Simulated scan of single mutants.
Amino acid sequence: MKKYFATYFRNFDYPLFITYILLCLFGLVMIYSSSMMVAITEQKPPDAYYAKQLTNLKVAALAFIVGAFFPYKHYSNKTILFMLMCVMAVLLAWVNINGMSAGGSKSWISLFGIMNFQPSEYAKLFVILYFAGSLYKKGLRESSIQNVQPNDIIYPISIWLLILFSVGMETDLGAVLIIGVIAMSILAFSGIKGRTLGKFVAVLGIFGTIIIAAVFLIKGDILTESRMGRFLVLKNPFEYADGSGYQIVNGYLAIGAGGLEGRGLGQSIQKLGYLPHPETDFIMAIIAEELGVLGVAIVIGGLAFIVLRGLYIAMTTKDPLARMIAGGIAVWIGFQAFLNLAGLAGIFPLTGVTLPFISYGGTSILLLSLAMGILINISMYYKFDKRKQS
């Protein structure tokens, strides 16, 4: 055990770890700044959201440690995969039977009154680990992942479709998009080539479309006036400034007011009741207003480093399991950040997804921290293997 820890810390990915820590701390500061007025209007202490996120980060730190020290190779273990699937099944049943609504989506559950939990966040990491583990196991049986066909992993595909259906029934369309893209990315990083990859993409695309169509038929109220408005505002949000374009327009005003240097930390005007709950999906607008281009560059630069580091590991490692998990985590973080920022910029409909590591949210930071721990564990093994070969 002592030898393991010595090897571990010798190959620890400190740049990746430091970037993750700095983003979390930066997000904590901005949550405090952006949520003060919201807390006061809700008759809470000014630091209520800050204090809650600080607690969330402490719990997330434990999740990170678990992910960082638990060898990633065990995610292909049949027992581990079964346990992950059981947790997923319980969470999906729980949220559909006794879920709580927030932000227009019934996507939350109360964990015994201790905390609110969003199963769709767990689903993102679950799809990465379960898809990667299942493909890897099947590849070992077939002597190569390249020999795996869609019918060989029909069970994991069926579980993915069930997750899409369940999350779709929660009307959490942002999570549906992310879970769909994650599955496609796992296939892309699996090493499957040519026609076989095309078959997989076709199978997931066709059946995924059928599942989403079924959700729309069953839940006839998905395309509400509010959600349709998110598409209408893309052409000209100022035309709908008093309705569907309200958030985007005020986000623009925050960004414009910040300019190059920003108003100064804590000096935002838009957080004073103009942007509803800016500490969540519109926190970047407050960052831009208070800290200007520098603040925005810190966030985008940090996220880009994590994503590119994950992609680099995925594209250079020889281990298919490491490649799929690292690539899946990088795509998850990158695509979620894109959805958040594209919604703020008005080039994509608002989905309500959080900005990774920055926005307020307990479930989000908990699962992202666990994912970062796993990525750092993969990086450690990757660096160890490179040193052995040199």
Rank of each mutant, 00 (worst) to 15 (best):
157 I>N: 00
382 Y>D: 15
34 S>K: 07
278 P>I: 09
74 H>L: 15
345 A>P: 13
123 A>V: 10
202 A>T: 13
165 F>Y: 09
275 L>E: 07
7 T>H: 14
129 L>Y: 03
194 G>Q: 08
20 Y>F: 12
27 G>F: 03
148 V>N: 00
339 L>G: 02
273 G>E: 11
254 A>R: 02
328 G>T: 10
331 V>T: 07
73 K>R: 15
146 Q>K: 15
26 F>M: 05
100 M>N: 13
88 M>V: 11
153 I>R: 11
349 P>I: 07
366 L>V: 06
255 I>K: 05
12 F>W: 09
156 P>M: 10
259 G>H: 00
244 S>V: 03
85 M>W: 14
182 I>C: 00
254 A>W: 06
234 L>P: 05
48 A>C: 12
335 F>C: 03
205 G>A: 12
296 V>H: 02
49 Y>A: 00
365 I>P: 01
256 G>H: 10
363 T>Y: 01
388 K>A: 13
87 V>D: 05
172 D>L: 08
74 H>C: 15
350 L>F: 01
174 G>I: 01
265 L>V: 10
25 L>H: 05
188 A>V: 15
53 Q>S: 06
288 A>Y: 08
81 L>S: 06
44 K>W: 07
305 F>A: 10
361 G>P: 05
386 K>G: 12
10 R>A: 10
159 I>E: 05
51 A>F: 13
286 I>R: 12
377 N>F: 03
208 G>E: 06
208 G>C: 03
285 A>Y: 08
62 L>S: 08
10 R>Y: 12
110 S>L: 02
29 V>S: 11
342 A>K: 12
154 I>V: 14
270 Q>F: 00
72 Y>C: 07
86 C>P: 10
222 I>Y: 04
25 L>Y: 05
200 F>Y: 02
1 M>H: 13
239 E>T: 12
57 L>S: 05
381 Y>N: 14
158 S>R: 07
194 G>E: 09
198 G>N: 10
179 I>P: 11
113 G>Y: 03
213 A>L: 07
86 C>I: 15
25 L>D: 07
185 S>G: 06
375 L>M: 12
287 I>M: 06
209 T>P: 12
234 L>Y: 06
372 M>T: 00
199 K>R: 10
133 G>H: 11
211 I>M: 14
183 A>E: 04
340 N>C: 02
43 Q>H: 15
165 F>Q: 01
193 K>W: 08
150 P>G: 03
